[in-house]
Simulated scan of single mutants.
Amino acid sequence: MATVIDINGAYQAILHRLQNMHGNVEVGIFDDGKKEPNKTSVYDVAVYNEYGTSHIPARPFMRQTVDNHEQEWADMAQKLEDRVANGMSVEQALDILGNKAEGHMKETVGRGKFKPNSPKTIKRKGSAKPLIDTGLMRESITYKVNK
């Protein structure tokens, strides 16, 4: 068995940082009061699209993002743990991960595979692109770090 001799306290500092790696990142659209021009909350629009309604087919941009990037995020988190062990703050690491996930979710809204808009919706919007109308929902995707 090897023995670690911690002359300058660096090993203990690393252990302390690793033991105190608490926190998580939430990514999505938070109920912050933003409204679409028709006065519907952006949060509600996101929920309606994610799960569908009697008039709107489900276009699960959040679940699709997780399905497509979960392993990539896990790999990134592992690398970030190593960086935290070498001095990066937990908040910085979570910020990097959240920023990446936010970008992936916004990309999914723009490029995901979703049921097409109805002809009536296309006529009203002037576009066949699902999930993109005013752009406010996509712009509202963000992340927050919780410690």
Rank of each mutant, 00 (worst) to 15 (best):
A10M: 08
P60G: 13
V45N: 04
E102H: 02
G135P: 06
L15S: 06
G103M: 00
F61N: 01
K35E: 15
D82M: 03
V109T: 06
N68D: 15
K129F: 06
T142D: 12
N20S: 14
A46Q: 02
G103E: 03
E139Y: 06
V66Q: 12
W73V: 14
K100E: 08
I5R: 11
H69N: 14
N8C: 00
K39L: 11
H55K: 15
D133I: 01
A13S: 05
H69R: 05
L131Y: 06
L80F: 00
D32P: 06
D44I: 10
Q64T: 04
M76V: 03
E107H: 11
F114S: 10
S41K: 13
L136S: 03
R138L: 12
E91M: 02
V45F: 04
Y143H: 07
Q92P: 00
S41Q: 13
H22K: 13
F114K: 06
Y48C: 02
G110C: 04
A74W: 04
K79M: 04
Y51N: 11
N68A: 15
F61I: 05
G110M: 12
A58I: 07
S140D: 08
N117D: 14
E70F: 07
V4S: 05
M105R: 01
P130A: 08
A10R: 12
R17H: 10
R138N: 11
G9N: 01
T3G: 04
G112H: 04
L136N: 08
D44G: 02
A2M: 08
F61M: 04
T134H: 08
I141F: 02
K113C: 04
Q12S: 06
H55Q: 14
E139M: 11
Y43E: 07
R59Q: 08
A10I: 10
R59V: 06
V145Q: 01
T40C: 08
N99Y: 02
H104E: 04
K106N: 09
L131F: 05
Y51G: 02
G23A: 10
M137K: 03
R138M: 14
